[in-house]
Write a protein that binds this DNA or RNA. Structure first.
Lengths: 128, 128
DNA sequence: AAGCGTATTGACAATCATTATCAATAACGC
DNA sequence: GCGTTATTGATAATGATTGTCAATACGCTT
């Protein structure tokens, strides 16, 4: 019996709220937002809904510097980060060439469904 | 008065163990390794030593998917990995162009002492 | 070599995000 | 509407990391 899937107002609420959020949001923040808007949704449910969205590629996730998991509605854009070691300042960078390179390298070695992790660290101007 | 710094066998032990580790290691792993090697070093001390090394640019840190903080010795020559999601098979890859690109991007944004993390994931031939 | 001031240690408590538990609820097919 | 069962939500549990603080030991001076 393949897992049956049901639609609930909770999942819709999370999806909608995630869409309304500008950038990345943590599960805790999202839960707070919903609560403040009058929702009675539970924290655990928010976590589960976000995990679901992520596994269905409706959301992207990344980790903030202090270990929180952040989500954003799955925009098309995929970018990487330049991060300051000292103050944590983060700059979003484009990496089209590198994306292509990564996919090519994977293919050369017979790997399929390539994905990658690329982050650059350094000391930013203020911290040097 | 500027904070005085002292050398202890604990810091050396952490530095050495980090150097011996192949790739990235978590603080917990490192502590376990040291314990298994007969050291009586405390867990909190390992965390502090790693944080120190990171702040002195003797180590880089990044976050694993499951939220752990991972460290690796920096300054030594490094390569990158192509990793199979399923079986964990790892292929070492060259990335000179990308290395150069990373340094250039960092410089463009006023970042100094650039370092980076680049890993490619995929399903290898046997696992596809 | 001995003494001193204080940075550092380490055992343990505290914190905080996330996950597991499980009885109660509600979605979907009939 | 009815029954099955995925889903919810309050709460406990987990696990990595940080804070606490008395005891220790590093580096300097004598």
């Amino acid at each position: 019996m393949t897992t049956e899937k049901r639609n609930t107002w909770q999942k819709d609420a999370v999806r909608t709220e995630l869409g309304n959020a500008k950038g990345f949001v943590s599960a805790q923040e999202l839960h707070l937002n919903l609560k403040n808007a009058g929702s009675t949704i539970g924290l655990a449910t928010v976590y589960r809904a976000l995990a679901d969205l992520a596994s269905q590629n409706e959301a992207d996730s990344l980790q903030s510097k202090d270990g929180e998991l952040l989500y954003r509605a799955c925009g098309t854009e995929h970018h990487h980060h330049l991060i300051c070691r000292k103050c944590g300042k983060t700059v979003e960078i484009e990496a089209e060439k590198v994306e292509a390179w990564a996919d090519e390298v994977a293919k050369e070695h017979g790997f399929t469904k390539p994905s990658h992790t690329i982050d650059i660290f350094g000391d930013c101007g203020n911290c040097s």
